[in-house]
């Protein structure tokens, strides 16, 4: 007997039945085909969108993330250049080949040198475009794909996310709704990353240190784009 059959057989013996069939199975199939929402905390879900954006900024701030609000995409390179200058960081940037980032007028800021594609070990600053920001905990959500390589969000020491205010959602469930929509009929993205603040560890005497393996700092440029 294969390991698979043995394991399934033992589970069924424990449950005192054979393979699941009939109405019970149909009910579970229906749940998987159309997953119902469980209780979603009111913290963000009960707010209107403008307040969700405010909550997102507040929660991100609590986990050591700096948020800069800008009017439109034209202001993005300036905001990034200012942040890098203020922290005395290199201005060589690796950005994701994302359509939103394609629209940013990078050439207007010659001090920034931009490369597009997946990140390599030596890249110092990564710029990505998340699928959404989650208000309830100030979390960014990325779905990997040709326009959003995951290495950009993890390898460089500094991570910068360009997020439209209208892509701020209330809850994790809202992110999953977007991922499902995006991948409808095709495969699910290889990785979905929820990122809440910069990397950290407390493994040495419970002392909190930022930048264990992932980025040491996280900056969000929030683009109002007519909203807010």
């Amino acid at each position: 007997m294969s390991g698979r059959d043995e394991i399934l057989g033992r589970i069924r013996a424990g449950l005192g039945r054979g393979a699941l069939e009939g109405a019970r199975r149909a009910a579970l199939e229906a749940k998987l085909a159309n997953p119902p929402r469980n209780l979603v905390p009111a913290r963000a879900a009960a707010l209107d969108h403008a307040d969700q954006v405010e909550l997102f900024i507040e929660m991100a701030g609590k986990v050591d993330t700096q948020v800069t609000r800008v009017k439109d995409l034209a202001e993005v390179p300036g905001a990034i250049a200012d942040y890098l200058a203020q922290k005395n960081l290199p201005t060589e940037i690796r950005r994701a080949p994302h359509p939103l980032l394609d629209q940013v007028p990078w050439q207007a800021w010659p001090t920034l040198s931009i490369q597009t594609g997946r990140a390599e070990g030596a890249d110092a600053v990564g710029v990505g475009a998340p699928l959404a920001g989650v208000a309830e905990t100030g979390t960014l959500a990325y779905a990997s794909g040709p326009e959003s390589p995951a290495t950009v969000n993890f390898l460089p020491e500094t991570h910068i996310a360009v997020l439209r205010a209208k892509d701020v959602v209330a809850a994790y469930e809202d992110v999953f709704a977007r991922v499902r929509e995006k991948s409808a009929g095709g495969p699910f993205p290889r990785t979905v990353n929820f990122i809440t603040g910069p990397s950290r560890t407390a493994d040495i005497e419970l002392t909190l240190i930022l930048g264990a393996h992932g980025p040491k700092r996280l900056h969000i440029v929030l683009v109002d784009d007519g909203e807010g």
Binding site: V63, R118, P146, P189, R190, N193, F194, I195, T196
Partner: peptide, 24 residues
């Protein structure tokens, strides 16, 4: 676990790198 609102990284990994992906 740690008393955080959310851990820093929650990652869903589904299958291998897809044909057009740049990494993974």
């Amino acid at each position: 676990a740690t008393g955080q609102e959310f851990s820093v990284y929650t990652t869903l990994s589904t299958g291998a790198r897809q044909s057009a992906d740049l990494d993974g």
